[in-house]
Design a protein around this nucleic acid. Structure first.
Lengths: 215, 215
DNA sequence: GACTTTATAGAACTTCTGTTCCAGAGCTTA
DNA sequence: TAAGCTCTGGAACAGAAGTTCTATAAAGTC
């Protein structure tokens, strides 16, 4: 982009537009710029707007009122957000209500809005709020939010939400495939690992992130 | 808010406005709504817009073109983001380069863009990337990002970044004010607490959040 | 100084656009 | 059935707003 030096007036106009946009929620009309910047004629504004558009600072549509849009300004860029439903509370031994496609954001206690890069652009992400100290050894505290990705398979050592069919309950454990059994390692030294038959486990998702807010 | 059922037409209009806003960057004129929704008169749109405004779905300013703003609609709201500079790496005993007002985002290794509510709307927030296990007891892992708020004072037990003047070094510790000394409690049981004179400590910021990305 | 570029004024013009008024259709209710 | 509500159509008006034109300064360039 041709970053030619902007004149004082052009800076002024640009600032005014940004301000107006922020305060009112829509772009100013030419005559409002005239007043707001204490200029004297619409053609003067027209003149400078054309320059600003040519230099890539804004965009307008011909003959359409209030069609100014600011470009690239750091102040108003909004990154694409994804909505992550917090579908439940996870504490040792409690079933986790994993959402199915339809009951996705319906069952949510609340929704997080996160920038896409925080979930690395992954699909089928949900979140659980952690209750209790059942995961301290995984450095996850009471009150933290864990980001989960819905998967049905996992590698050794990954922390996953597991549904134990016969027990009809779900927990968060580290999973290790050993011979013909599955070792489920709790994330708390107070608890012993569990060994179950592979046919009894159904993986519901894996932990892909942790968010903690203090103070 | 009076959540009266919206009629089909009103839904249609609302959707069209949202769409238009998204695609063009400014609100549609009444007559553009007429065309876009295949309606037959401006007064019809006027009629429905008034209802939509009364019901709290949007806001407009009188006699100002394209002044429609959508309210609260879950679908297209982009939350305001703030830019948090990751100003350095914190590992036990390493000085932390706390940014001053001018060198704010200049010294940043990278920038995080976070939704405002993740920093509770706080000002002067920066971030540090954690290197090593010096903070495991605070449930902060190697590779985590800690969100810091620049403050110069702290309460007992808060985790803060402290500048030790005479030693000319900074670390992250929990701080306890005891009689005429300050106890700095490391976040790792391997390390012993340090006692220093209040005049020797300068608090640079406190931890307000932790972000971890796995897998 | 002659010439070009940049910046400014003012007014006129045309189109865009919000607003208003009136009439009527369709529906429900007493 | 009359009354009353919601919803629709069409047209006209007035003010808002983008555009254009001409003239004039000021400042830099040759």
């Amino acid at each position: 982009m041709n970053t030619k030096e902007l004149s004082h007036k052009q800076q002024l106009i640009l600032n005014f537009i940004g301000d107006f946009l922020h305060r009112r929620g829509y772009a100013p009309a030419i005559r409002e710029i005239v007043q707001g910047c204490r200029l004297s004629s619409t053609s003067l504004v027209e003149y400078h707007l054309n320059i600003l558009e040519r230099e890539g600072y804004l965009r307008r549509d011909v003959e359409i009122s209030r069609s100014i849009r600011l470009l690239g300004g750091k102040r108003l860029r909004h990154k694409e957000m994804i909505i992550v439903p917090v579908v439940g509370i996870i504490s040792a031994g409690t079933p986790i209500p994993v959402p199915s496609a339809d009951t996705w954001s319906n069952v949510a206690l609340e929704n997080l809005e996160l920038p896409q890069d925080m979930v690395s652009g992954k699909e089928r992400v949900y979140a659980l709020r952690v209750k209790g100290d059942s995961m301290v050894d995984a450095l996850i505290d009471d009150g933290d939010v864990v980001l989960m990705q819905q998967v049905s398979d996992a590698n050794n050592g990954e922390m996953v939400a597991i549904w134990l069919k016969s027990e009809r309950e779900a927990t968060l454990k580290k999973v290790y495939w050993e011979q013909d059994m599955v070792r489920l390692q709790p994330c708390n030294t107070q608890m012993k690992p569990i060994y179950v038959h592979p046919s009894n486990v159904e993986i519901q998702g894996k932990v892909i992130g942790v968010i903690r807010q203090l103070s």
